[in-house]
Design a protein around this nucleic acid. Structure first.
Length: 302
DNA sequence: AATTCCTCCAACCGCGGAGAC
DNA sequence: TGTCTCCGCGGTTGGAGGAAT
């Protein structure tokens, strides 16, 4: 049996909100607070479904919303967070004060994605140029070969090797992660070790334990292959694109056998700490940033 | 000036998780 | 334990407005 719609659509208003509707919603929420969206429209005198009201409030009417003018710093942070979290817009928006997930999502899709694609295209163009140069070189070599086989000592395999190296240099220079959207599951995620405040990964049968000393935060892994932990960045067909503006690269947390790669998880955590320690940080994040990230995620229990 | 094309973003839709019963 | 409802999330759509022809 299919799920019933969230609200009876008959007779309900759709499309853009009028100023009158905005005023009614704002007045009601200010008086009664957020929540109870299902019953809100009726009580507020609105001919809208609860979902629509919630969306309007959360994305537009909320007083703390900062609209437009995304600063270069926010831009940079957004890219970095996206490189770590993928399309988890609400989580990303939670780290950008005053920004909504919808705005972040739109901004990403309309601006940053294009930026990345442009850079990716540039990378391709450079590669194509390289290929063309190689082809020309190859032709040249062939001609020389034809002229004087004895004098042409360079083997084809060597030429291929050279070409590969040339391409590799270009690819290494521009490398940005473009993750697939994923969801995290609560049952799969790390929980705080109450005894020593280290993060632990629950497991049925431990396959190992690692402690990273000498840093402010410690990560201890006790994870098994049957207790998958993190899926951030899982991307079997990783397309590495664009920009020197990113120095963080998110990778699959599974090895080729599908087993969790603890080293990569630790690197992810380190990257978070790295984000925290950025000198030109404009936001009021404290050292518990990573912690708060987990806390704020409804998907994650610590 | 008129038309077409393109961009942006507010709003909608469907899905999954959590909690109540 | 299973079902239902509510809430929140991410993907997608459609229309307004600007740019290009």
């Amino acid at each position: 049996m299919g799920r019933a719609p969230c609200c009876a659509k008959v007779g309900l208003q759709k499309g853009p909100w009028t100023t009158k509707e905005d005023a009614l919603l704002t007045k009601y929420v200010q008086a009664h607070g957020e929540g109870k969206w299902k019953s809100l429209p009726k009580k507020a005198g609105l001919l809208r479904c609860g979902k629509s009201c919630r969306l309007r409030w959360v994305n537009y009417l909320r007083p703390d919303i900062k609209r437009g003018n995304i600063t270069p710093d926010e831009d940079d942070l957004l890219i970095r967070l996206h490189s770590l979290l993928g399309n988890r817009w609400s989580l990303i928006a939670g780290r950008l004060p005053g920004r909504t997930d919808n705005e972040i999502k739109n901004y990403w899709n309309t601006h940053l994605l294009k930026k990345i694609q442009r850079n990716q295209q540039q990378t391709c163009d450079v590669k194509i140029d390289c290929d063309e140069q190689q082809q020309q070189q190859s032709k040249k070599n062939n001609n020389i070969k034809k002229k004087d086989n004895n004098n042409n000592k360079k083997k084809k395999s060597d030429m291929k090797k050279d070409a590969k190296n040339d391409n590799h240099q270009v690819e290494e220079k521009i490398k940005v992660y473009s993750p697939k959207p994923i969801r995290l599951k609560a049952s799969n995620l790390p929980r705080r070790d109450s005894d020593n405040s280290l993060f632990t990964f629950e497991s049925n049968s431990s396959i190992g334990s690692q402690e990273k000393e000498g840093t402010e935060q410690h990560v201890r892994n006790r994870t098994t292959c049957d207790n998958v932990v993190f899926e951030v960045g899982v991307n079997g067909e990783n397309e590495f694109v664009n920009a020197d503006m990113l120095d963080i690269e998110c990778e699959s947390y599974f090895d080729t056998c599908g087993v969790v790669d603890h080293g990569k998880l630790e690197r992810l955590y380190d990257e978070y700490l790295q984000l925290l320690s950025m000198e030109d940080w404009n936001y009021e994040f404290d050292a518990s940033f990573a912690q708060s990230f987990f806390d704020s995620s409804s998907d994650i229990n610590i």
